[in-house]
Amino acid sequence: MAKKIDHLGLRSAMADRLLPVLVAAMSFLAALAVAGTLAASSLAGQWNQNTGADLTVQVPDPGDQAVASAETRLQAVFSVLAKSPGVNAPHVLTADEVNNLLRPWLGQDAGQLGLPVPAVITAQWSGAGAPDALRAALDAVAPGTLAETGTHWAERVAALTASLQASALSVLLIVTLVASAVVAVATRAGLAQGRDAIEIIHGLGTLDSDIAGRFAARVTMQTAFGAVLGTLCALPVLFWLASLALPFTGVTADMTRAASLPPVLWVVLPSIPVLAACIGWVTTQFTVRGWLRRLS
């Protein structure tokens, strides 16, 4: 068939502007879902890395004498930490650092209140699992000492992330199915409208693949256009959401807003129109070929 001539009359049969608009809406949702998945995954990774490795040790009555030692409880605990495998960079928080931590609850200077504030030692935990053996060793020299890692919270965050990702993937699946259904309905409407022309062209010996190809080319163009539109519309929303998430990512305020979107998103977002075009092409091919089977 000559390329420039619209033998099937698709310009009128498939002129409906609703298809690109609906695909744009689907792509908008898909972009948000994809961004949500990636952001949740990225944040979870970051939190797992930071929180999961943190070890916090609280030593009550730090100035008192340790068990079976001339050292204070704080010194004894620090010595055990320094020797323990899996414990890296132990650091005793200074009075100012402790005050900073407690300020939201106890005001400017917690020391002036005369409360028995424990000493706090922070470190990096690289051991596997919970530090149960370490807790026992610390409790032996300074009973009542608490050692906590972020593993427990990291696990909760991981579970939350997994559920968020599952939700986002469900949204993507539904969006894909709805987009396919929308394309199929639009194609069938086009087939119904152009039925006479198609029957004539088919009767003249046009191959089913040619007719399906013509429809698919038109629908692919419309879906790709709609998807580009929807994805572009999603961008400002994504930047806004990313700016809301800035405090959770550790990104400083002076960084650009674009940098606040996960880099992988800049690869994934352009793939939405490509995916939409593929859905349009495949669905149209199936729909038209199935319809033409009745004429054969």
């Binding site: 068939m1 001539i5 033998h7 009359g9 022309a197 004539i200 062209i201 046009t206």
Partner: peptide, 17 residues
């Protein structure tokens, strides 16, 4: 005949196919 095509294009159709 295909109503959206000219007389020429209608006749040319089988040859183009």
């Amino acid at each position: 005949l295909l109503g959206h095509l000219s007389a020429y294009d209608n006749v040319a159709l089988p040859m183009r196919l």
